[in-house]
């Protein structure tokens, strides 16, 4: 399997040099290959979300290198990083993060709009994604008219509409009941089986156990890496 993600001694330090200095990431080195299903586990404040933000190109490390498919992310312009987030990474958040003023259809359409995809083509891609998530009938609804589970399905539809290579899910089941949460996990497993690399951030060991590989993080350091289960 080809190397997808490689971090070398990545630090994320806030207020560096001051008394209030916080080391959200304290020398993290991790490699993730194409097609893996990795869970990053840790208590709140352990630095796991910071790690996801850096892996997802939403944030840049204070020190250390992050190579995405061999390219040093530090060297990339904001424009390139935006494009990577747009095309190669699909984000799923705990709080769904749908735009409240847009309908389901428009929310899922948004990343495709930023890709300048033509309307008719866009329409089909949105429809596919919504159908896959089983909520195609809700396309005219606004997020506030949907249940939490449905909103998360819309958010996932938005993440997969662009057919990204990596899905990053930050506590995707955190705000859902266990049954709905299991459905969501089932989707993630399905995407992984289809070849998508899935990185799941969670504080819940039982959820993490469903991944092929667990990376435990505490105080900004990796304290356990199970490696890929055979």
């Amino acid at each position: 399997m080809a190397r997808l993600i490689e971090t070398k001694d990545v630090y994320k330090i806030y207020a560096e040099g001051l008394e209030s200095e916080v080391r959200a990431l304290d020398g993290v080195s991790v490699n993730i290959d194409e097609g893996e299903f990795v869970a990053i586990v840790g208590q709140s404040g352990s630095g796991k979300s910071t790690l996801m933000n850096i892996l997802g190109c939403l944030d840049v490390p204070t020190r250390g290198d992050y190579l995405l498919r061999g390219t040093d992310v530090k060297e990339l312009s904001d424009k390139r990083l935006s494009r990577i987030r747009n095309k190669e990474i699909g984000f799923i958040f705990q709080q769904y993060n749908l735009v409240k003023t847009l309908t389901v259809q428009e929310n899922v359409e948004l990343p495709l709009i930023y890709q300048n995809i033509r309307y008719d083509q866009r329409f089909d891609m949105v429809k596919d994604a919504l159908e896959k998530m089983g909520i195609a009938d809700k396309y005219k609804h606004y997020p506030s008219q949907l249940s939490g589970g449905q909103q998360q399905r819309v958010a996932i539809a938005r993440a997969i509409a662009t057919k990204p290579e990596i899905i990053m899910a930050d506590e995707p089941t955190g705000a859902l009941d266990s049954k709905t949460g299991n459905d969501i996990l089932a989707f993630l497993k399905e995407f992984n089986q289809e070849g998508t690399t899935v990185i799941l951030i969670t504080h819940d060991n039982s959820i993490a156990a469903q991944a092929n590989r667990r990376i435990r993080i505490a105080d900004g350091k990796i304290i356990e890496d199970t490696g890929v289960k055979q």
Binding site: G56, L58, D78, K79, S82, R83, R85, N86, K87, F91, N97, L98, V99, L110, P111, Y114, Q115, R158, T162
Partner: peptide, 8 residues
Amino acid sequence: IRRAIGAQ
């Protein structure tokens, strides 16, 4: 949100 999903 827009920035996260790829808005420049």
